[in-house]
Design a protein around this nucleic acid. Structure first.
Lengths: 146, 146
DNA sequence: TATTGACCTAAAGTTAGGTTTAGGTTGTAC
DNA sequence: GTACAACCTAAACCTAACTTTAGGTCAATA
């Protein structure tokens, strides 16, 4: 059993954020002491791990609540939950591809400014193409523009 | 020269968004017709490409404006701009590592629900460890928890 | 000449995900 | 018995990045 302060330190999340998650219905099983103080158990901790994971994968709070509702409904929703994680996996893979394209573009800009700094001016450089551009950078640049 | 409507279609961005970017000072060189209508040239188009790239890499509008200011100041700011792209490259690499950890966690959950769906119940599974868990998945799970 | 479509502005509204504030309770330490 | 830390609530506030609204200009077309 953990207090909200302990959980806050464990996950490096502000206490009001944990209370906000609770208010949004993200902890289905959270118990309280008679005085009203929250008691986080191992299930709540696992829930929080999943919450952080789903948030990082781009899900909204209300979607995460829906998932938590499914969990509370037991084995009948197993297939739904599986499909959700398959879908999230695909979403993350898409994000990684997008991020790779962005990185390609940034690599190109690093090359551009490397060259410009060496020359002391960008007057002799173009933003779209330069014959001195190394092949991999050129490919990246094309790639980043779809 | 392109009208705001043409640029909107080229980049698949709503017209009000382009006007908003303009108001925020992201197009330093944007010309206008005497009647006040915006004329986007090739420089504005390249600026928009950079804006999209920097946004995707996690930069805020006001930071992008600052970069655009540097561009307008000419060769004196080349080194600054180079450093900025180096920094953005590092940021993106960090994001990709984070995303990989998230993907690892999601892979683990996919395995978890695959197994649970096969058995028809999650009663015999734990959220933290299962002896049937394949090694790579177990490594991923550990990894995703730092 | 009237209508249409593409543009313009300023200002108000929206959304998600928190964060802050103000005021109150509880349980232990001196 | 009082001071303190750690908890509680409801409600107001905040921020970024748009989006919507309301009202207006302008040039070409029917």
């Amino acid at each position: 059993m953990y207090s909200i302060g302990q959980v806050s330190k464990m996950f490096d999340l502000p206490i009001p954020t944990l209370r906000y998650y609770d208010k949004e219905g993200l902890f289905r099983d959270l118990e309280r002491e008679p005085s009203g103080i929250r008691k986080f158990n191992d299930q709540s901790i696992e829930a929080l791990r999943v919450i952080e994971c789903l948030k990082k994968s781009g899900m909204q709070i209300k979607e995460i609540r829906e998932f938590m509702d499914w969990c509370a409904q037991g084995d009948a929703t197993l297939e739904k939950r599986k499909q959700m994680f398959y879908h999230q996996r695909q979403q993350i893979q898409k994000q990684m591809e997008e991020l790779q394209k962005t990185l390609d573009m940034v690599e190109y800009k690093c090359w551009y400014y490397d060259t410009a700094c060496e020359e002391g001016t960008e007057k002799n450089l173009r933003h779209d193409f330069d014959s001195r551009m190394p092949d991999p950078i050129r490919d990246c640049y094309r790639n980043a523009h779809r």
